[in-house]
Design a protein around this nucleic acid. Structure first.
Lengths: 224, 224
DNA sequence: TGAAGAAGTGAACAACTATTCACGCCTGAT
DNA sequence: ATCAGGCGTGAATAGTTGTTCACTTCTTCA
């Protein structure tokens, strides 16, 4: 062989790949999954349509990686927020608040990742994404249960239900309109977090306290 | 004019229309929205593809009517269950249980109506459908609040969150697998109803009582 | 510098279905 | 019986995008 990938080339290839993914992510954040079409994404990434296929075997694969990437970021944020909390209940409150703030600050992207119709089959990666996030929430509920703060329950089902409640009420088609106003946004996050905590068995009074605590650090994220 | 629709013809036309809608509904219940394609639906209804267009201007219109129809049935069932309950809290419990049982007994149809990707735009009718159901639940929450059984809250947001929780945990991709087993099905309905009631502020102990009461009449529906 | 091979290109292709429409059949009034 | 006109038909059409591939350009190394 008279040609071998040099370090520089490897880096350029990786950069191109990232650029394509980033272009897809931007397109999704701007116009939803419907805007993630090969030709427009290629334009955004400054490559030709055919080039996309040098990096991703199919559109389904591209979108799957996009979903995985966003999901990874989300999971990391949830863990960060939960681990920073002083106890299991606050950790759960922090995790829930984080999800709420995240989906609100990137509504179109969240909706695209979660539920928007896509012409190719991305159900497996969506499933994996949900499973990861849901599993993390379930673990936090479980910790609170073991600490005696919550009644025993089916934590997996509860976690799934909580996420459903958050998504539907914050980015679903019935989500309130004017969430661009920071005050309303905070209200919505608080309301939904309160609902979620009560759902798993936190007493109303205590839940209200946890919500206030959890929203403080999360407010910083709203700008992101 | 030497031709006028006679009563018999009018009836036949109405019957055809219903047949097409029913065919679409069957297809959706069997294979999800993806199975609602003009040609197959026409075959099911024993008409030619072109005939479908004599009754519905477009596929979007056909699916919109399908959604509206299913939604109407659902709303009626919810009202029936709620109105039969002795008080506002039981009414809410009954409404929630009804939704849970319904979506479980027709999972594919429910998923199709609610959230499954469709190649045509049906967002407005889906929105209307959700609005109706959500409004009904909100009204029931409101009644319980006015009766002093629940703390004051944003009932519209709460109703949306409840529905999200129900749908995601019962028909979403993370829904438990073996819900065909009647016992597991009942457990799932109970668990989720309990979560929902607690979420809006019903005390744990009281919620458990309401759930048991609500599931009794709803069990009959499971067979449907 | 030139050969070998990888990477990039973008126009052409393919596949899938909603939708159309020219035609024939049936229904209802005279 | 006959004709006027709506009703039913289904093959042909059309528009949309993901995907391919023959060709060009760039990179590496003897």
């Amino acid at each position: 062989m008279v040609y071998r990938r040099t370090h520089q080339v490897v880096k350029r290839l990786a950069a191109r790949r990232s650029a394509i993914l980033a272009a897809a992510r931007d397109a999704a954040a701007e116009g939803g999954m419907a805007a993630v079409q090969i030709a427009p994404v290629a334009v955004r990434a400054n490559v030709a349509a055919g080039t996309v296929y040098r990096y991703f075997p199919s559109k389904a694969e591209l979108i799957s990686e996009l979903i995985a990437e966003v999901s990874r970021d989300e999971l990391a944020a949830i863990r960060r927020a939960a681990d920073a909390a002083p106890g299991p209940s606050s950790a759960l409150a922090g995790a829930v608040t984080t999800v709420a703030v995240h989906v609100l600050s990137q509504r179109k992207l969240a909706w695209g990742i979660l539920a928007e119709p896509v012409d190719v089959d991305v159900s497996v990666s969506r499933l994996a994404s949900r499973r990861e996030i849901s599993g993390e929430i379930a673990a936090r509920i479980d910790a609170a249960v073991r600490a005696g703060h919550l009644p025993a329950q089916d934590t997996a089902l509860a976690a799934t239900a909580l996420l459903g409640a958050l998504h539907e009420s914050l980015v679903g088609p019935l989500a309130p309109e004017n969430l661009d106003d920071p005050a309303k946004l905070r209200d919505a996050v608080q309301t939904v977090t309160l609902l979620a905590l009560r759902a798993v068995g936190v007493m109303d009074a205590r839940a209200r306290g946890l919500v206030v605590q959890a929203v403080l650090p999360a407010k910083a994220l709203v700008g992101a």
